[in-house]
Design a protein around this nucleic acid. Structure first.
Lengths: 238, 238
DNA sequence: ACCAATAAATGAATGCCATTCATTTATATT
DNA sequence: AATATAAATGAATGGCATTCATTTATTGGT
């Protein structure tokens, strides 16, 4: 789907008739306004996601992005103001993938649970966006705003005191973002190595957790914290 | 101009390692092993912190760091393997500033409270380190390890079930890191701007919180979440 | 139907960045 | 005394985001 969309935007033959069926890279297009616009923000977002999924965030450079779209790097700047702007587009796209469907339908606690888990899952694959989100005014991210609206409405309907709704969402979000980082941590992150004998309590606790043989320790920690937050916040409802 | 080191233009003498009697403004040092080593990891860490406090993390470049120490950029690589290595040194230095003194002295809940608040306060000034911490094996960070040891011991002494200690700490840490980002957010981050009428519940909740007129909304959210976590985890103690 | 303005592309800079490398030389080791 | 090592220098290297002058097809006004 991604490749298809990008390919459809490629002008087939402009100066020299191209015989190749799949001109993935080096079409030489002459400068000047093309018959139809090649780029737009949706296409850039889609191409960026595709690039990230294959090359990771290290591979997301303006040059690589332009190349995947069959365009010169400078052409991108007619549609985004900076690379941060691209990250903003990505963030808003991903916000729309977070599951808020249970709010107003299921009980408050299970709606929060679904939201938080999906929120964490979506952004654990995109942690480089988190520093951007933290500083991003929501006014520039309509889908993110829509997510907040759904969650806020769910809290209100559940009888949450109005003046605490935003604080509770912010706290849950903080936990979600931190937990998203935790997902990316290497398995042996808590291996103390040669210093193990200097931290006996810590080493024992790490070993003890390993004995439980959980498939994903990060999920255990997330569940533990999330349930505590849900229980604590649930008590605030009137 | 490119070749001449800018040490002469330094407005203030660089913080030099205690072991070095090197003049603050070396005019032109010839290549080769100096009488006494100019650089070491402590000096690099101190200079990096100073640089960050004046120029921010954007100003923390290997070139700027070298300049503040009065050496060539390449000299740094005799003492650190990469810029990420510098960030690691910073992280470990900061971990030692986190307050774990209450564990084993005060009741468990107030010890956790003090730890979490100071942890957040320390790293809210250093959020660019958070992505590094998340992937950093603790074996390379002795002071960080010492912090974990103190916290783990405190949990055990408080009667926390051994197999849940690490998960609880990980969850608390996730919340702390996320909250550290939140501290850096601009005040008007939740201003929906022209889209306000499309998100009435959200806008109302934001306005309602503003009515409370708290000095720092971020602190209200942090307190709300932290107290829920402390209450929830406290119930796990045997 | 012309003509000016605009939008959207090109490619060639620009300047910054982390990192590497050959070289130098004072000190430490044998 | 000879040699090895540690720690510095300065000159690349390659990658990066971004800017700018230029080109040209389309649009909108008269």
């Amino acid at each position: 789907m991604l490749g298809t969309q990008a390919a459809e935007r490629l002008p087939m033959p402009a100066p020299t008739p191209a015989t190749s069926a799949t001109p993935a890279r080096p079409i030489r297009r002459r400068a000047g306004r093309p018959t139809a616009a090649i780029l737009d923000q949706d296409g850039i977002t889609t191409a960026a996601l595709e690039l990230i999924s294959t090359k990771g965030y290290d591979g997301l450079t303006m040059a690589a992005l332009a190349r995947s779209l069959g365009v010169a790097p400078s052409a991108l700047y007619n549609h985004v103001s900076s690379k941060d702007d691209v990250l903003l587009l990505l963030e808003d796209h991903l916000a729309a993938m977070v599951d808020v469907s249970a709010f107003g339908v299921e009980p408050w606690d299970s709606a929060v649970r679904k939201w938080a888990w999906s929120y964490r899952d979506v952004f654990s694959e995109h942690t480089p966006l988190i520093p951007v989100i933290a500083v991003l005014p929501v006014a520039n991210a309509p889908k993110t705003l829509a997510m907040y609206e759904a969650v806020t409405a769910g809290f209100r309907e559940a009888g949450f005191p109005e003046e605490k709704i935003i604080s509770a969402i912010v706290a849950l979000e903080a936990f979600v973002f931190g937990a998203a980082y935790d997902v990316t941590a290497p398995e042996d992150i808590f291996d103390a190595g040669s210093l193990a004998d200097q931290v006996p309590n810590f080493t024992a606790a790490v070993d003890r957790l390993a004995l439980e043989n959980h498939p994903r320790p990060t999920d255990v920690a997330f569940s533990l914290g999330l349930e505590a937050l849900i229980t604590g916040f649930g008590a605030l409802r009137g």
